[in-house]
């Protein structure tokens, strides 16, 4: 006999299982059947970009518009690349290190700038993206405009002599390996996001999103909370960026620019700010849509932006709001 909480959770668990099967079995199967191997790269990018977008979504969750995720993705990519090429560290160690470093930078920068709100915060994070790009151009360790190239593929990861992840250079199909790695990263990231949102921390975030003064007056330590959330958000950004650098095997100052920062934000908006899985759907639609429209040539941007504007006009609260409205309509 299932308890009430379990029956409540059942659709969620089922949905999660279906999602896992689709991502890890169905997609590779369909790709091998149709032979569109280039889709692997697209879908891997979608998975990684959605990880970074998830971070942006989390800052939205405390009521801040974050247009600076490109900065943290770039920081992550550089930290991982420098660790792998210059210090000879294994990629699997550099990946969390990149995330942690991005998180630490976020704490240092976040302490002053998280005092800003609304468009002020949005604009200063936008400026932050430019700052990081220009810093990467100016610093000697990042190798300026030439960037860091020919980064080796991720090596073997073994624990107590047991190989957990084989060396990517020896795998006959590294594209598939990257796809699986990116998807695992995405699943773990969104699962932890779901956990955060449905925890005490998530409730505190919601109270902040509604009214910061009120939350603070009932004893929520908002100064601490917003820095923590910003650090988590940037951690995701750093992870996504580091993995992206490993796939491209190169990092340039122009790897993540203002356009990318804006894209991360748009992914969240398009998916819907009220839904944890919004950024994933938003990234899929925006990135995949752009790729599919490639065949239109010079009309690509026109059709893309036109569709985007239409979507906003029809669903101003994000793609996922469509389901929400219909269910509520049925209840009435």
């Amino acid at each position: 006999m299932l308890s009430r909480a379990d029956t409540h959770r059942l659709p969620l668990v089922l949905g999660f299982a279906v999602f896992l099967i689709a991502v890890f079995l169905l997609v590779p199967f369909l790709i091998s059947v149709t032979g569109r191997w280039n889709f692997y790269f697209t879908l891997t990018s979608v998975a990684l970009l959605s990880v970074a977008s998830a971070g942006v979504w989390l800052t939205f969750y405390i009521g801040r518009i974050n247009i600076g995720q490109g900065a943290f993705a770039l920081i992550g990519a550089y930290v991982s690349a420098i660790l792998v090429t210059k210090a000879g560290v294994s990629f699997w160690v550099s990946l969390p290190a990149a995330g942690l470093f991005a998180g630490m930078v976020a704490i240092v920068i976040g302490l002053p700038i998280l005092r800003l709100r609304g468009v002020y915060f949005a604009m200063i994070t936008l400026v932050l993206t430019e700052v990081v790009r220009l810093t990467a151009l100016a610093l000697p360790i990042t190798n300026g405009a030439k960037g860091i190239v020919s980064i080796p593929l991720p090596g073997e990861l073994s624990l107590f002599g047991i190989t957990i992840i084989p060396d990517f250079a020896t795998i006959e199909n590294p594209k598939l390996a990257f796809y699986y790695t990116a998807c695992v990263l995405m699943v773990v990231c969104f699962a932890s996001m779901y956990r955060i949102v449905n925890s005490r921390l998530g409730q505190l975030c919601r109270s902040m999103q509604q009214n910061e003064e009120l939350a603070s007056s009932v004893g929520v330590n908002i100064a601490y909370l917003r820095v923590i959330v910003f650090a988590i958000s940037s951690f995701f950004g750093g992870l996504g960026g580091a993995m992206f650098g490993a796939i491209a095997q190169s990092v340039y100052p122009s790897s993540f620019v203002v356009k990318d920062s804006i894209d991360f934000m748009l992914n969240c908006f398009l998916g819907g700010l009220g839904y944890v899985f919004g950024p994933m759907l938003g990234t899929l639609v925006l990135y995949f849509g752009w790729d599919l429209l490639f065949e239109l040539g010079r009309y690509q941007l026109l059709v893309y932006s036109g569709t985007l504007i239409l979507l906003i006009l029809v669903l101003p609260n994000g793609l996922l709001s469509i389901r929400f409205d219909r269910i509520r309509g049925l209840w009435k």
Partner: peptide, 17 residues
């Protein structure tokens, strides 16, 4: 904030035009 998505969409559209 949803207007930001629209503003960015319009920026893309004008670029395309």
């Amino acid at each position: 904030e949803s207007t930001m998505l629209l503003a960015a969409g319009i920026a893309f559209l004008l670029d395309a035009v």
